[in-house]
Structures are given as C-alpha cells and as structure tokens.
Design a protein around this nucleic acid. Structure first.
Lengths: 150, 150
DNA sequence: TATTGTTATACTCTATAACTATA
DNA sequence: TATAGTTATAGAGTATAACAATA
C-alpha cells in the first residue's frame, strides 16, 4: 500500500498530512482577515463567536463553544468581556436554569455589518484567485468531512 | 452580485466560511491524533516541528517556522526544549553565521518511527470513512490553494 | 542597512480539575 | 448521579518590539 523507503519514519509528505495541510491553508487564508480584524480591535475568537451567535440565534453556550471551536472555560472569559462591551447578552434558560442563553445585540450586529463588505471582498478576491469551482468543491468537501466524522 | 437580505449582516453561513470550515475540519481531524500525542507526552507543535525537520533535512529555523506554522519566537523556545531532549540539533551555518541550521537526531527519528504505525492507522481510518477519492481531492485542493495564495 | 534569530513582555488560549447550581 | 457553566491554575502560544550578531 504505502511504500516504505530507507528513511526510518514512514510518513506521508507533510503536504499530504491532512492536519498540517488544513493548518497551513488556514494560516494563509487568515492573513488578510487578520489585517481586517486588527483594525476592528476584536480578536479572531470573538469574531467567530459573533458570527456563530448571529447565525444560530439565541443558543446555549455549549453550542457556541462547539461551533466556534472554543472550550467552555475560554468561552466563559470571552463572553464576560463581550457582554461587558454590549455585543452579546446572556440570560438563564426559562426551562433549564443551568443553561444560559446567549443572544447577539444590535450593537453586535452592527459590528458585523460594519465589516461585512470588507470581509466579503476578501472572500471574493480569494475566490477569484483560487477559482469559483475549486472554492465550492473545497467547501463541499470540508462539510462532508464534518458529517462523516460525527 | 450577493443578495442583501433583511438580516443586518450579510454573511455567508459559517459552514461556507473558509476560515471557519478549515478550523472545524482541523479540530475534528485532530481529535484522534491528540489522543495519540497525549500518550507520547509531546505537544502538537513539537510534533509538527519534528515532522517538518525530518522531511526538510537540515534547514534554517525560518523555514521550519514557516512550514510548521509557528512564529520565530515560539520556535526559539520550542527548539530550546527539543534540543535539550535530544530530539533535534542546532549548529551555525558555515556560510552565513546568522543562520542556525536545525537537524533531526536519531532519537528524534526514533520518536517519529515509534508512532508512525499508529498515526498512519488513524489516517487510514479517516480515509476509509471519508472516502479515498474525497481525501485525495481535498488534499489536492488544499495544496492548490496554497500555491495560488503565494 | 537589511536580515536571522533571541529576548522580553503582555495578552490570550489550552487543558484539566474542582466547584456550584440545577436537573 | 449527571449536566451546564464557572473558577482556578499551570502551561503554552501569539504578537510585537527591541536587541545582538552578521551580512
């Protein structure tokens, strides 16, 4: 199946290592986005939380943590500062008081809106360079990977 | 071009956001690998450095930093502990004394070899679930993305 | 002057465990 | 007993700037 060369460790090239390839691709893709976020003063993680909160509507924290790829203790801290900034609101779930439901505020939405054009322009430029078909294929495959792994 | 809905922020679904999709995919893919690395006691970052050092042969630190997706100050610290552990060696470049060349040691190779089978088995299982064609397509697309972005 | 790598620093995230309160 | 989230803590990475040595 795999060819075992004279080299002691029989690994694929790192370009064909899925975790490494995903990381490198993400670093590349994030570069222009980081420049944009630097201007907003908001961190990558907070940006993800905002995106997820806007998309998911009022949801419990665990859902946000999972979808924004953050651990709950990290999210607790992040939410503390984001609610203080007025970007999000938290309130206890009426049916299960253990849960706290997070909702994006108008100010949070406004922050997203302010940068929507620039963010979409960055995406569009990447799509143009990479190719629209390739971009769609890549996103499809990433989505399918998630589904098979669940 | 893009449709502006009633919703204030006109963003794609986060599933179709390339940075978020890449991050989620990576988190999923890393799960079994993290379990493996936990047993070795080596961190994700060190594992990447080892993989890159083995693949690239003796190279200067900047190359390792770029290929392992680490900043130079982080790499400096990581290399300090990895050379102390005897996994890597560093020596000044003969032609350009500013550069320091990093080389993997037999002990470093041995560490990789010890886990090659398990790592490859994890990869194979993922490939079986996801589909061999899909996996190849995904890796091809990620590689092409890197090239167009350079 | 520019480049390679180191050091210093402040901030943030990660990972884990122990804890509170609800269920 | 189990679950949702918080707190505490240790370790590590990020990001930036200032620096030393070399080119």
């Amino acid at each position: 199946m795999r060819e075992t060369n004279v080299a002691p460790a029989a690994f694929r090239d790192t370009d064909r290592s899925l975790p490494i390839a995903l990381l490198r691709a993400r670093e590349t893709v994030m570069q222009p986005i980081r420049e944009m976020l630097a201007k907003t003063g908001i961190s990558e993680q907070k940006w993800r939380v905002l995106r997820v909160a806007e998309e998911a509507g009022p949801v419990e924290q665990s859902v946000i943590a999972a979808r924004a790829c953050l651990l709950l203790p990290s999210l607790t801290r992040i939410l503390r500062s984001m609610t203080a900034e007025g970007l999000l609101e938290k309130h206890a779930d009426a049916f299960d008081k253990r849960k706290s439901i997070v909702t994006i505020t108008p100010k949070g939405r406004a922050l997203l809106s302010e940068h929507a054009d620039e963010a979409n322009a960055i995406y569009q430029q990447m799509r143009d360079r990479f190719g629209a078909d390739e971009m769609d294929q890549l996103l499809d495959l990433l989505e399918r990977l998630q589904k098979t792994s669940t």
